[in-house]
Computed example of a mutant assay.
Amino acid sequence: MRGRARELLAAGETLSAVSRLLGVSRATLRDWRDRAGAEYGPVDCPLCTNGKPAAGPYAHLLGLYLGDGCLSVGKKQVYALRVACDNKYPRLIDEAEASMCAVHPTRPVRRVQATGYISVVSYWKHWPCHFPQHGSGPKHLREIKLTDWQRNLVIAEPGPFLRGLFHSDGCRVTNWTTRPVGGMQKRYEYPRYQFSNESADIMELCQWALDLLAIPWRMPRRNALSVARREGVAVLDRHIGPKS
């Protein structure tokens, strides 16, 4: 039906004429025409048709979802994927929107202003297919395990996955220490990445992804992870960098 509609529109037929001929609304026809290059339609799901989402954008979106994302069901079993982004970091908001669009390219992504943050929102019946970790209650009170296909995508793209995690629940800070030099105390400053999460399962996923990139880490507390070695910070700088 979409192919026939596009053929008629390309031949010069008006939206009204094609709508009368095919019994499809003008809004739907306009969407089919303007999004003719999309890989799958608004109700199609690559995971339900033996496909898979784009590895990099999905890995990033998965990290964001595990940190500051949630799914909620609305009318007609359409789910809203929401990722909360701090107003202070417009680049992070842009990246969240870009990854959401890349995973589900046939529908618009909306930004909803709330107090102190922006929700990046997309509606789709098939979001639970992409995030089977969805469930009731806070994530740290339920089991969070990746499926085999999710793990394979993260193995292929651990950098974007860590980017999503650290942009949600992490930060890059400058620490300092003092050392005696020539009988006097000298101050040294060094960058460090920190990640905190109350979910032991999500913390374990962060550790696993860091191991994939051979990044040394340590746990100063049960719910806090630190990457402070120079070589590890350098790798994370390439994949994450400071928030902006």
Rank of each mutant, 00 (worst) to 15 (best):
R2P: 01
I202F: 05
P191A: 04
P57H: 08
G241A: 04
G37M: 12
I93C: 08
A17Q: 10
V24Q: 10
A5H: 06
Q113I: 14
D237Q: 13
T49Q: 10
A5I: 09
V78N: 06
S16E: 15
Y193M: 00
I93V: 14
W32I: 06
R6Y: 11
N152L: 10
K145A: 11
S136L: 14
Y117R: 08
P42V: 15
D86E: 12
L8S: 07
N197T: 12
Y188H: 08
L21Y: 14
G232R: 03
A234E: 13
H60W: 10
Q113P: 12
S119M: 07
G159F: 03
R172K: 15
A55Y: 04
G74F: 06
S196P: 01
V181F: 05
T115A: 13
G135I: 06
R187L: 12
G3D: 15
T106W: 14
Y190W: 07
C171F: 03
A5S: 10
L146H: 01
L61C: 03
G74W: 06
G170W: 00
V233Y: 05
A59L: 08
R221V: 05
Y190M: 00
L8I: 07
Q133E: 10
D169T: 02
C70Q: 08
A36N: 03
L15D: 03
M1F: 14
R20S: 14
A11L: 13
I144G: 02
Y65F: 15
S199K: 06
L165Y: 02
L162D: 00
W124T: 04
G135M: 03
R26Q: 15
Q185F: 14
T177P: 02
L62F: 12
L92R: 06
L81K: 02
L61A: 05
K76N: 13
F166I: 12
L47S: 01
A38V: 15
T49C: 05
A17I: 09
S99Q: 04
L62G: 05
